[in-house]
């Protein structure tokens, strides 16, 4: 479970997070939906302790990230934006490197890597250096890195950006699998279809604040609109910065 309480963060002149509170539960997919510049990435970075909030705190399975960062991060897997691949390593080396950093022994890391490679159908590229990978291949490698150590909580920052339909479907299936296994999945997006198709709970964000929380259906009902997109526009009160 990921819980943030009263998070505030100022970056330069911008109030990126403004008294933000929400929780993402185990066994659910939670979508952080907001226009560009709403503070989604800042929020996720704060959850990982990479940014220090001016106010408030974030807890991972009840562990405060600011107080015990290593223990809290042990419960987290990150699918970052941008991916941050090591171009000269092969996916197998890359995935098993991060597995070891999460405390797996060398042989356990190898096993875990092999099984995640199989799960994501990465076998054909697993022993090629990441240089020159397509966006879909990069996505799968980065995703494998995020789930190889089976963390309870998986955080994805804009996971579907630049993916074709096939890759998007693979990603969706994996996220549903993770949810069914009882993981807490939190992802940020500004793509309505993704959020509508996947999420049990949507957190609509604008200007660093939570505007609305609820399932996609509930949000439509709340605003009296037929589609999540219309509901979203209604909620944030502007049509600025939305990618359909």
């Amino acid at each position: 479970m990921i819980q943030v309480t009263n998070l505030s963060k100022r970056i330069g002149d911008v109030q990126a997070l403004d008294d933000l509170s929400f929780s993402a539960l185990d066994g659910q997919i939670t979508g952080l939906l907001g226009p560009n510049g709403a503070g989604k990435t800042t929020c996720l970075r704060t959850v990982f302790g990479l940014l220090k909030p001016d106010n408030g705190f974030a807890e991972i399975d009840g562990i405060n990230i600011a107080k015990s960062p290593v223990a809290a991060k042990q419960q987290l897997g990150l699918f970052p934006d941008p991916f941050g691949l090591y171009e000269r390593l092969t996916p197998r080396e890359y995935i098993s490197y991060f597995a070891e950093l999460n405390g797996l022994s060398r042989s356990d890391a190898k096993h875990a890597t092999s099984s995640v490679i199989e799960k994501l159908h990465l076998a054909d590229i697993a022993d090629r250096q990441c240089k020159g990978f397509s966006q879909g291949q990069r996505m799968k490698t980065a995703l494998a890195q995020a789930i190889v150590h089976q963390p309870t909580n998986i955080v994805l920052d804009e996971p579907t950006r630049g993916l074709d339909v096939m890759s998007t479907r693979v990603l969706r299936d994996i996220l549903r699998d993770l949810k069914n296994q009882g993981h807490c999945v939190l992802f940020s997006s500004h793509v309505m279809q993704e959020v509508a198709a996947l999420c049990d709970q949507v957190i609509v964000m604008a200007e660093g604040k939570v505007v609305a929380v609820g399932s996609p259906d509930a949000l439509c009902q709340q605003t009296g609109k037929n589609s999540l997109e219309d509901a979203f526009i209604q909620l944030i009160g502007t049509d600025e910065g939305i990618a359909a």
Partner: peptide, 14 residues
């Protein structure tokens, strides 16, 4: 520059 520093820091290493 390759954005892997933030990823590395988000793993449980000090």
């Amino acid at each position: 520059e390759r954005n892997s520093l933030a990823l590395l820091l988000s793993h449980p290493v000090s």
